[in-house]
């Protein structure tokens, strides 16, 4: 554990909680992509199956349980509790174009051709692109609520901190996991455009809206 990984995990946790609180407090999931949230629920489920087989640390297990629990709670709020506020018309990204290639890639490029390992690899690849339906939705509507941008910023920050974590681990532990690193870098790049808008607009007190 190093400071980048800890702050990365906490930033990830903050993102998840910001999203849950936004939906809960406003009683609305307007502007949130239910498809991205389903993808994240799939990501956590397929990655954290090792909760049942491997114990790493109390921290590790607790965080996994919290992430999975929050992911399903978010999906429940979007598709059940506050379904009436879900903006399905604008959430039109075709997720099969992500899930199918990612599944194929996980079978082809992995550390070990075993059930658990392929699921882990699938979750890593899927996480790297799971935010695309959300970004697509924002580009389609041309705007995002400020609280939604805070959520996205925390999520992107988590990815960026994980890259620093891998640099740290490579230098001080000689550890690197190429699959996680490549997927993580891809994922972080997807946030770059958003980071730019966040810094130039949201942090200056303006609402995030895209030019028509």
């Amino acid at each position: 554990m190093n400071i980048f990984r800890l702050t990365g995990d906490l930033s990830h946790l903050a993102a998840i909680i910001i999203l849950l609180l936004k939906i809960w407090k406003s009683r609305s999931c307007a502007g949130i992509s239910g498809k991205s949230q389903i993808l994240f629920a799939i990501v956590f489920t397929t990655r954290y199956l090792d909760l049942l087989s491997t114990f790493i640390s109390l921290y590790n297990s607790c965080m996994k349980v919290i992430y999975i629990g929050c992911a399903y709670a978010t999906v429940y709020m979007i598709y059940m509790k506050f379904r009436a506020t879900y903006d399905g018309n604008h959430d039109s990204f075709r997720v099969e174009f992500l899930v199918v290639p990612v599944g194929g890639l996980a079978v082809l490029i992995n550390h070990d051709f075993s059930f658990m390992e392929i699921l882990w690899t699938f979750s890593i690849y899927l996480e790297s692109v799971a935010i695309l339906p959300q970004l697509f939705m924002i580009s389609k509507t041309g705007e995002a609520e400020t609280i939604t941008t805070h959520y996205l910023f925390c999520l992107g920050l988590y990815r960026a901190l994980y890259i620093f974590n891998w640099v740290w681990r490579f230098y001080f532990e000689g550890f690197f996991d190429l699959i996680a690193i490549v997927a993580g870098v891809v994922q972080t790049i997807l946030y770059c455009d958003f980071f730019y808008l966040y810094v130039t607009k949201v942090l200056k007190g303006k609402k995030l809206s895209l030019p028509a």
Partner: peptide, 10 residues
């Protein structure tokens, strides 16, 4: 190298 020995990250 056995990179996949343990996935200790979240």
């Amino acid at each position: 190298a056995d990179e996949s020995a343990s996935h200790d990250e979240l």
